[in-house]
């Protein structure tokens, strides 16, 4: 009788094998170490065990959910080349409706594969140049960047730092940077085009502004004049430059309409006082009436 060779377990759609380097959208670059059966909550689960390359942590995924979570092989060099073509290409206007943006980005991150991650990074990068990213999207931007840097480094066998620098040579091209013979427009300080800003104002972003994180320092001057103190950028510990626009803005405001603030200030000061006064008096009267009533009853007794 011929001896049977141990069959390799089928993982996902069959394209993944033990020992493969894979990308796990929520974890980063991992290596498949095996398939085993674990007893969890009294039930046997067949799990795929992964080892996260970043820190050596063990990650276990139920075998049936491997494809659902977006686990995939690390991209090849041709795909990475296309990624850089996409990154270096001029971007579209960012999606300004945060609900649509959130849904699209979540779908792209979990099921969009490598190019989905690139699309998320690129769209959030474009958005960050127009307006500040809310905290959640800032985290998403960082996650997308982390995944992409890890995958580029793994695919090209280069250090993570070199991978990230190259990624930013495409997103923030230094002067003279070329991609396939074409010189890329060098990165500028501030939004790329004022047209985008105008479109943003027309559409209105009331919903978005609630969860808006600090504004990009680039566009600070105009926004700060509007008095959006909440949206002030992450205050750098020692940032005289950041304070200068405010310092400049104040003298510009005050000399012109000197009498107006005083006029406006008076009614503003009176109103709260007038509102506060009645409730204070009312309880006193009531208390006095109660005391009088109590005295009367006492007297009667």
């Amino acid at each position: 009788m011929a001896s049977k060779q141990p069959q390799e377990p089928v993982i996902g759609d069959g394209s993944l094998h033990v020992g493969d380097r894979v990308v796990y959208p929520n974890q980063g670059i991992c290596r498949i170490t095996g398939v085993s059966v674990k007893q969890i909550a009294g039930r046997d689960w067949e799990v795929v065990t992964l080892r996260r390359e970043e820190d050596g942590a063990t990650v276990m995924v139920p075998r049936g959910k491997v494809m659902g979570i977006g686990l995939r092989k690390v991209a090849d060099i041709d795909a990475i080349d296309k990624v850089f073509d996409l990154l270096a290409a001029p971007g579209n206007d960012p999606q300004l409706d945060w609900k649509i943006r959130h849904r699209e980005n979540a779908d792209l991150m979990s099921g969009g594969g490598l190019f989905g991650t690139v699309a998320v990074l690129k769209s959030l990068h474009a958005l960050s140049r127009v307006r500040p990213l809310p905290q959640k999207e800032r985290e998403l931007y960082d996650n997308a960047r982390h995944l992409l840097v890890g995958e580029i480094a793994a695919a090209m066998n280069i250090p993570l730092h070199v991978a990230e620098d190259n990624l930013d040579y495409a997103l923030w091209p230094p002067p003279g940077m070329k991609r396939k013979g074409q010189v890329l427009p060098p990165a500028t300080l501030g939004p790329p085009a004022p047209v985008v800003r105008a479109a943003e104002e027309e559409i209105g972003l009331e919903e978005d502004e609630e969860e808006a994180a600090p504004p990009p320092p680039v566009a600070a001057e105009e926004e700060e004049e509007e008095g959006e103190e909440k949206a002030a950028p992450a205050p750098p510990p020692h940032a005289p430059k950041a304070e200068t626009p405010r310092a400049k803005a104040k003298p510009a405001r005050h000399p012109r309409p000197a009498p107006h603030p005083a006029k406006k200030a008076k009614p503003a000061a009176k109103k709260p006082a007038a509102k506060k006064a009645p409730p204070k008096k009312a309880p006193k009267k009531k208390a006095a009436a109660k005391k009088a009533a109590a005295k009367k009853t006492k007297g009667k007794r």
């Binding site: 140049r129 923030w172 990165a187 994180a213 990009p216 992450a234 750098p236 510990p237 430059k241 950041a242």
Partner: peptide, 27 residues
């Protein structure tokens, strides 16, 4: 980081010279 005032902003971008203060963004 995309914030030009943050120390993690790429060193070759114009933000490096424009904001010489050593500070990190909130994130």
């Amino acid at each position: 980081c995309f914030d030009p005032r943050c120390a993690m902003h790429p060193g070759w971008s114009p933000g490096f010279a424009a904001y010489p203060d050593v500070a990190l963004c909130l994130f």
